[in-house]
Nucleic acid binder design. Structure first.
Lengths: 328, 328
DNA sequence: TTGAAAGCGATACCAT
DNA sequence: ATGGTATCGCTTTCAA
């Protein structure tokens, strides 16, 4: 910028005015400055600008894994809202590791992002964010609630969704329904299990412990759990899967049995309609989650001073065939 | 930092030393400084640090749509390599709009990212990047080659892959094979069409223009093209799809016919094995693309001075059933 | 309309 | 071992 000023034979501030489209420059000098700018290939250094202005026009997004379609859809929505507000987006994957979540969040804060959208890693304690929040960095938690801090939150109605999905199976005549879920220390997994239990209880149905399996989303564990639930004199006739990865693992394993088993999965799959039968799901709205969270964030940045808001988005049952199979 | 220095009763530079773990501080004073830091909730301002040091330890990634599983897998790989090199990642989706691509890339550059990984939008002219490249911002193009600039590139062997996929169908006895692809101004689409044509020519098979359709990836267009190719006295018996979105649209439409049609798709689908029959694909390696591109980028940042490198990753045929159906 | 000088929060260099 | 001071590139303030 100094160089541009020198070359155009004007003061530093005049260049600044031209670069930022501020008034108070004759079109004559503006032109000279523009010429110098393109001659030198000058580009304003936003780091310096940020340092001076305070606001960085950037947002940090910490999630579990950007490669997961659920989170990538969410990410896109956050990006879109950010763009409308003139902000750029940092993204980082925590891999469900609280330490990495913290490193990422703090690294973003050190870059002085204006705000943070965080999908909490299982077991993470968010008190580490207290100094940043006090320093004015707006923070919204998404998909799961934070621990040890009060902040805006956007969640899916997990329990209600699981309840609806399970009730759907019960409505089709199933009485023995397995629940295959994620690790119980993940909030969403626990909530979905709760919904399942509620639906069973509502229908006066007992739940055999052997029908329930929670744990890491490995094909081995899911496969073994499925085999257990399908064995014995009174095997389950239906299956409720706690998330998309479990659903896929279960479907793969299910093909090795030649018994028809009804399936309802939590989370939609992109091509669920192409399977035979089509996969019935309780669909979340990842884009809706991302959009809503980003809107809450920018509301804060625009000065909304109220207490923390806690929003919940409904999950939607989409019948496609697999959840409508009768018991055998 | 000033405040910390005051509270600890030391000089500014000493605080800087402690914060950065530099030697030359007695553990005694270091402790006092640490105490002041946590008392004040101090966090170093990386914007200022960046301004001074030159390197920002951040990378910008511009792609078509982070919500697309292909790109989100790629993004994750770039992120992983960046993390190993201590860099944070900006992501932005261009939506295949050259103008947005430019805005994003320049915005990242204005933030002084150390490097840029770009999936060029169709038709984008990359001469706009010349000043940035001259200013030393390392740039790697991925998935598609850039226009009007010489830089490191990582591509999939699109033509070879399409050729192999088409040859696979020919090997199964098909002689009339449709090609449904993306817009011809997208480099990958054009390359894949070329591979298809080569395979047909190699086998001495004619190609009827009505078998080929290029254009936007809308279900309507794909469906109509498919209907055309499947009509008339000599309908195609097999189908080569130019990308995952086309494949999905085609599979959906195909279900409305009750004729078995062999299908090979370019790009893997996450649950391709769960379809019936399983979907045969020519799979790219999105994570490999991302990883390789990021590695080239950091090689540059670590001082590699050589001429631009152009790498090509192979595509891999994965037979799963749909591509092994015989002609009818 | 224009520009000189101060300052944003850190680091680098050179004294002490 | 410690600290003062110039500096990074820009915006802000105020005077011309």
């Amino acid at each position: 910028m100094k160089d541009v000023a020198a070359r155009a034979g004007v003061g530093l501030k005049t260049v600044s005015r031209v670069v930022n489209g501020e008034p108070g420059v004759t079109s004559d000098t503006a032109e000279r400055v523009q010429a110098a700018i393109s001659a030198l290939g000058f580009r304003r250094n936003d780091s310096a600008r940020i340092l001076r202005k305070g606001r960085t026009a950037s947002v940090g997004l910490v999630l579990e894994d950007i490669a997961d379609p659920f989170y990538s859809a969410l990410s896109r929505a956050v990006e879109e809202v950010s763009r409308l507000h003139g902000s750029l987006l940092f993204t980082g994957s925590s891999d469900e590791d609280p330490e990495r979540e913290e490193q990422l969040a703090l690294a973003f804060c050190a870059r002085r992002v204006d705000g943070l959208v965080i999908v909490p890693a299982a077991g993470a304690d968010h008190r580490y964010l207290a100094p940043e929040v006090r320093a004015g960095i707006a923070t919204v938690f998404i998909d799961r609630p934070p621990l040890g801090i009060e902040a805006d939150t956007v969640l899916t109605a997990n329990a209600a969704g699981a309840r609806e999905g399970t009730a759907h199976l019960i409505g089709r005549g199933h009485r023995r329904i397995a629940f295959l879920g994620d690790s119980p220390d993940i909030h969403t997994a626990a909530e979905r299990l709760r919904g399942y239990r509620e639906a069973m209880a509502d229908a006066g149905l007992p739940v055999d412990p052997s029908w329930i399996s929670l744990g890491p989303t490995s094909p081995e564990r899911v496969g073994a759990a499925l085999a257990t639930a399908l064995s014995g004199p009174e095997p389950v006739t239906a299956l409720f899967c706690g998330n998309n990865r479990v659903t896929v693992a279960a479907l793969r394993r299910l093909r090795t049995f030649d018994r028809p088993v009804a399936v309802v999965g939590f989370d939609d799959l992109e091509f669920a309609d192409l399977l035979s039968p089509g996969l019935t799901v309780v669909a979340q709205d990842p884009a809706g989650l991302g959009r809503t969270a980003a809107q809450l964030l920018f509301a804060r940045l625009d000065g909304y001073p109220g207490p923390a808001r806690h929003l919940e988005l409904p999950a939607r049952l989409i019948p496609r065939g697999s959840g409508e199979l009768p018991p055998t």
